[in-house]
Every structure is written in C-alpha cells, then in structure tokens.
C-alpha cells in the first residue's frame, strides 16, 4: 500500500470512529466489559509500541542498543513528573549522545 493511501484511509477511519459516537445509540457501546476493554486498549497498544520501537531491529531480530537507554531516561523523567517535550527531547538526546560516543 503506498504511503498516501495508508495516510488517507487511516484519516477516514479516525473520523468515522469519532463521528460514530455522535450517531450510535450509547447503549450499544456501554456494556461493562466492552467499556473496560476499550479503556485498556490504549495502554496495551502504547506498551506494545514502546517495546517494538525499543527492541525491534531490522529483519525482526531483538536488539539492545541506544534506544533502550533512551527509554530508561524517559521512564525516570516521567517518574520525576517531567513535561512531555522534556521527555521526548531527553530520549532523543540520550540516543544521539550514545551514538556519538560510538555505542550503536
């Protein structure tokens, strides 16, 4: 699939999901189990994204490199209640400096 198709299909689906909440009867989506699962979906997906962004190397190998250190720094900063941009910037700086120092 070319990138434009991916972008536009994903945009269309994002709008459909938002709009559906305005037109679908609330009771269809308000079962306790459904609402619990949908409330937990972002946590599961974001956690999966962190793991793949940190450990996945090319051709599906697990790699330990500068990205792991960057995520560690991000975790410490979040624990210290740092701002979003500080966390993102520090993660990038950590990886950049480690690479400058010659570590993958």
């Amino acid at each position: 699939m070319n990138t434009w198709t991916t972008v536009l299909v994903a945009c269309a689906l994002a709008f459909v999901l938002k709009f559906s909440g305005f037109v679908v009867p609330a009771r269809l989506l308000e079962g306790p189990r459904i609402s619990r699962i949908s409330a937990l979906l972002p946590a599961a997906l974001l956690s999966g994204l962190i793991v793949t962004q940190t450990f996945a190397g090319s051709d599906g190998r697990i790699v330990l490199d500068a990205r792991l250190a960057a995520v560690g720094v991000a975790g410490i900063l979040l624990w210290r209640k740092a701002n979003f941009l500080v966390v993102v910037g520090a993660a990038a700086a950590t990886a950049a400096l480690l690479r400058l120092a010659g570590w993958s």
């Binding site: 937990l40 946590a43 960057a70 993102v88």
Partner: peptide, 27 residues
Amino acid sequence: GLDAAAAGAFCALLWPRLATGDGRAAA
C-alpha cells in the same frame, strides 16, 4: 536520536494510563 524520541513519546502517552492496576496489568 529521533527514532528513540518516538519511544520516548509513547512512554509519555502511556504513563498516565498506568495509574490503575488494570492499566498496569494490560501494559
């Protein structure tokens, strides 16, 4: 380090969702 910045951004988005036990278990 922009590839690592993506992982950092996901960490920041995940963080508030770890406030509940179920959130932590799912993560």
